[in-house]
């Protein structure tokens, strides 16, 4: 475990209020999305990242606007942390015109290229090789931008994980692979189906990489650990693989009540909730409780207003059905 030495007064992130606000935005976005799912506004399914906010918020804080990120179907946190608008993010969940992807992607494919977020991928592991590609591209173009690729613990048992890690290492690509180990691959404890105790870190040495495990529920640790890997990548020193230990408070997807979790586990992890912990740190550093509460109220208002705007947006026009298949605007596969 990478532990940061820290004092009570120095918060180990560049903009503590910004990070706090960001984690709250992620949390309240998910809570609101859940509420609106129950009201029937969200299409298909939805995979919430409640409890995992520190990884997305801490990681995004290490990046420049020209850096690339790629995430998964549990990906609301990452695209929002990169700067995607909340109303457009809600709108995509609701299949509305205002949506990030014009309502064509849905919850599992939130993408905002404008903010450097090159997709949320719903086929486990598919995006690790793609992250190699965005990193390779930076290298080819002589840019010093870096790619961050988020994925879950279940991904470490799929072939694409291993192909991507090997290629990234061989080509020394500027990419940081971040495994959000939330202990469960879908409904199954990751330890029951993985040959090693640390699903990502214990594989690192196979690709000549350092095993790195961090506390993914401590945003200061996340920031420090990922910033180091990002700097390394930016200096041309190649890829890193980071395993961030975290926990999802909800089930795998909307239909999963997560009854397979042992009694007390959720409660135990709730005591390590990343936002609660950061609030404690801020208070130790002299932040005023009433200021922190005011920020949370502002965020709740911001999220609520964004959801309202998204709900007021019309569905995409029918004319959108055939657009965006091909680049030159062809609407048919026939010439």
């Amino acid at each position: 475990m990478v532990q940061q030495a820290r004092s009570a007064t120095d918060i180990g992130v560049p903009d503590p209020e910004g990070i706090y606000r960001e984690m709250l935005r992620l949390r309240h976005f998910e809570e609101k999305a859940y509420e609106l799912f129950l009201d029937g506004h969200v299409n298909g399914t939805m995979h919430l990242g409640v409890g995992q906010e520190a990884v997305a918020a801490g990681a995004a804080a290490t990046l420049r606007p020209d850096d690339c990120t790629l995430g998964t179907y549990r990906g609301h946190n990452h695209v929002i942390a990169r700067g995607a608008a909340l109303d457009a993010s809600f709108g995509e969940l609701f299949g509305r015109e205002i949506g990030l992807c014009k309502g064509k992607g849905g919850s599992m494919h939130l993408t905002s290229v404008e903010h450097g977020h090159y997709g949320s991928y719903a086929i486990v592991g598919a995006h690790l090789p793609i992250a190699c590609g965005t990193a390779w591209s930076a290298k080819l173009r002589g840019a010093d931008s870096v790619t961050l690729c988020f994925f879950g613990d279940g991904t470490t048992n799929i072939g694409a994980f291993h192909e991507a890690l090997n290629l990234a290492a061989v080509w020394k690509l500027p990419v940081v692979f971040i495994c959000e180990n939330n202990l469960y691959m879908e409904f199954t404890p990751i330890g029951e189906v993985t040959a090693v105790p640390r699903p990502a870190a214990d594989r690192a040495s196979a690709y000549g990489l350092k095993p790195i495990v961090i506390d993914g529920n401590d945003v200061e640790v996340v920031y420090a650990g990922i910033a180091e890997a990002v700097d390394r990548a930016r200096r041309g020193e190649g890829p890193s693989l980071i395993e961030a230990l975290t926990y999802r408070h909800k089930g795998h997807s909307r239909t999963d009540p997560a009854r397979y979790r042992p009694e007390g586990e959720l409660e135990d992890w709730m005591t390590r909730d990343p936002i609660t912990r950061f609030v404690q740190r801020l208070q130790e550093a002299g932040w005023n409780a009433s200021d922190l509460e005011r920020i949370e109220r502002e965020v709740i208002e911001e999220v609520g207003a964004a959801a309202e705007r998204a709900l007021a947006s019309p569905p995409p026009p029918e004319s959108e059905l055939f657009t965006d298949v091909y680049c030159a605007g062809e609407t048919s596969w026939r010439s």
Binding site: Y118, C132, G133, S137, G159, A160, N166, L167
Partner: peptide, 23 residues
Amino acid sequence: DTPISEQAIIGTAMGAAMTGIRP
């Protein structure tokens, strides 16, 4: 030249194609 890693080849080509390369 790549390893025998077809998923890596295709994924790498895709990531590059989205960001200004014609692989």
